[in-house]
Design a protein around this nucleic acid. Structure first.
Lengths: 189, 189
DNA sequence: TACTATACGGAGGACCCCGCCACTTAGCAA
DNA sequence: TTGCTAAGTGGCGGGGTCCTCCGTATAGTA
């Protein structure tokens, strides 16, 4: 198969740039039509490059997801496994709460079209990257047994969604994450 | 002002019944047009009785919200303030996770049209009803100081949203709530 | 330069939300 | 019972989106 044509690549890049702005401005259900208009292409071209809205979201957030995964890998060597996990969770929360549409993309692709790129979708990538941190923390006794990386990511995306309409999503999300980590009940002895 | 006309009341009731089914079937953004069609009325009639989609959601979930509020009041006399609060939180979680659209309605009306019935919207009602439970638990030292009823409701709606696409939302949501209450880290010491 | 697969844009159908306006009808009064 | 009137209704048109299909332009190659 020959490589993509030059104009196709150009359009792809322009769409991605425009989409990022539009999603930041209007959330995960920004108008695809509007994105096409701003990028100066026909609406069919959008659908050609991104078959589904979800595909577009994944593409827009890919870099950020990869950064988070790299962050997790970097933390893999830390001696303090609990601190490492918490730092990463905090970073993920910050991204999910700050970048509009990311949280929705994360929950949606759990239940996206089945058998459709289910290996390297955003949430799967995060799960895979975070899993070692969770495992090490659990082995150290720094994490309640039974808590999975999936649980943690679900909690984070939930927090991000719930704080989306808050005046200051980032700090509120971080607060809620802290509560979740420590627990809502005080240490009883 | 004269009371509503009989036909208006009839249409209202039919719309409410149809809307409940449609929202259960298709989520919070079910088609208003379709609801009108199924109820056998014009689409304008829907908008007349429910000026906004959010108004419709509130109306559909009102009974359930009131039940939850009553539940909270009933628990107000319990000696074990911690158990009372937890029971109520669990009940709210179950509703939010089970009844499709409820969680979305709850977060949306936090940031709904400002100055618009902000007193008796669903989330405000829940907040008001749950507040005494939280206060009593805090006074008893059964709740980490600084945790507010708003925090708890946000966490719950977040959990409900995040588990929406799970095969078994109710149990998963309850699991996550339990984690949140206890905290993700094991008791140290 | 000529050809062809690749990529494109726009038209058209289906759906939805929304506001407007002429018409129907419930409920009251004579 | 009969009329009246305002509350209530339904449908239409405008504007928007998503999505598919198809004729056309063009990048890359021979």
């Amino acid at each position: 198969m020959p490589v993509q044509r030059a104009d196709a690549r150009r359009n792809y890049a322009r769409l991605l740039a425009v989409a990022e702005q539009e999603i930041a401005a209007h959330g995960a259900d920004a108008s695809l039509e509007q994105i096409a208009r701003l990028a100066g292409v026909g609406s069919a071209t959008v659908r050609r490059h991104f078959p589904s809205r979800h595909a577009l979201l994944e593409a827009v957030f890919r870099e950020r997801i990869e950064t988070l995964c790299a962050h997790a890998r970097n933390l893999g060597g830390r001696a303090d496994t609990r601190a490492a996990l918490l730092e990463w969770l905090s970073a993920v929360t910050a991204s999910a709460a700050t970048i509009r549409g990311l949280a929705i993309a994360l929950i949606r692709d759990c239940a996206a079209d089945p058998a459709e790129a289910h290996e390297h979708c955003a949430s799967a990538q995060l799960t895979e990257a975070g899993e070692p941190l969770v495992r090490r923390a659990t082995d150290d006794g720094a994490l309640t047994p039974g808590v999975t990386i999936t649980d943690l990511i679900m909690l984070i995306t939930g927090i991000a969604l719930a704080t989306e309409h808050h005046p200051d999503p980032a700090t509120e999300a971080d607060r809620l994450l802290a509560l979740t980590v420590v627990g809502v009940s005080p240490r009883q002895r």
